[in-house]
Computed example of a mutant assay.
Amino acid sequence: MSDKNLPAISKQVTELVLAGSLSHAEQAFADAADQFGDYAVAEVLSTIPPQVTALHMAGFDGGKLSLTTLLVPPKAWADSLAFFAATFQDDLIEDDPERLAEQLFAHIHGVVFSTEDQERREALLQEASATDHGCTAFAVLFSLAPKEILELAGEIISKGPYVSGQTTSDNDVIPLALELAKASEDGWDRALFELFPDFRHSADLADAEFSDDPDEEPKFLQRTTRELLYRLRKQVPSTRSAPKAASGRRSIGTGIFS
């Protein structure tokens, strides 16, 4: 694809998405792929504003086939993820946080598991979890199954590279959490810290226990889905500035899969 084609396609797709014509934007990508190859779509997605990519991809959750889902470059997706919470409304966060968390899960799970390409899967998870908003987004998902996440953390600590990801539940968030832990040890640690701020070393995780009584107060600090959604929305960057890179945080362990 020549340099003169890229700006034209980028402009066309951006205008279509902002106008709400997602199917037409997807058709524009399909036409570009037919004429110039899949690489052209990835190239366009790397140049359009991340908030536009977020709007586009939000319309293709729930198993709908999308070239954007299949071809979005990992860095472009990680940047767009920062804008996913921009449309979250106070009443929904207050009254039905799990519904918003499940929408976020459908989006992230759909992108990460869109292909069988393990290298792409790892790159997507590494880029997303290299940002503060990405780690918060993963923590939102983990908050839907905190007991299972705690079990997985304990298994990772005890078994390292031999971890199976088995817990007392077959919750859909566990395979995604395990993929994150394998792709980025730091990203996994930081997402855990978002959900469980008190945990600062592996012994805490290994010794912690969850009560089966939902009315019992937790023995340690755990952020709720609602709290994490508010944190995520506060991390939505201004469209006048580039997405902010992650700040360094302490790690609970090293070399868990080495």
Rank of each mutant, 00 (worst) to 15 (best):
R200V: 11
S2E: 13
A139F: 07
H109N: 15
E102P: 00
G165Q: 09
A181Y: 01
D204P: 04
F210T: 02
H201Y: 15
S184T: 05
G255M: 03
K75T: 14
E98K: 13
Y162C: 08
Y39K: 12
D170N: 14
Q166F: 09
G248W: 06
V173D: 00
T224R: 09
A78W: 05
H107L: 12
A137K: 04
V52P: 02
C135T: 15
C135R: 12
L100C: 07
I9T: 13
G59S: 06
P161F: 03
L232P: 01
A58C: 11
F138P: 02
K147A: 10
D186C: 07
H133P: 05
A208G: 05
A139G: 13
V163S: 10
E116T: 13
L71Y: 10
P146T: 11
E94F: 01
G255F: 07
F193A: 15
S169Y: 05
K182A: 02
T53W: 00
A33P: 05
L192F: 10
A19H: 02
F84A: 04
A106S: 15
E216G: 03
V111Y: 05
S164I: 03
L144D: 03
L22S: 01
R190W: 01
Y230H: 14
L55Q: 10
Q89H: 10
E209Q: 12
F138A: 08
D31T: 15
S251W: 07
P161L: 09
D170W: 11
A139Q: 03
A85W: 02
E116A: 12
S46E: 15
L45C: 09
P50H: 05
F29Y: 15
S164D: 09
K64T: 13
S80F: 07
S23Q: 14
I108C: 04
P74S: 04
V41L: 10
F138I: 11
L192D: 10
K219G: 12
S66G: 11
W188E: 02
L16P: 09
L228W: 01
A137C: 06
S129M: 04
H109F: 05
N5S: 14
L65I: 14
K147L: 06
H56L: 14
A183I: 06
V44W: 04
V173H: 00
F88V: 04
A25I: 05
Q89N: 13
D31Q: 15
S211H: 04
R233M: 02
E155A: 11
Q89F: 03
A242Q: 14
S184Q: 04
S238A: 10
R200P: 02
E209I: 12
L104Q: 10
V44F: 00
Y230L: 08
E227R: 08
T69K: 13
G62L: 12
V173I: 15
V163T: 15
E98G: 02
P49K: 01
K147W: 01
E185D: 14
H24K: 14
I252M: 15
I174L: 05
F36S: 11
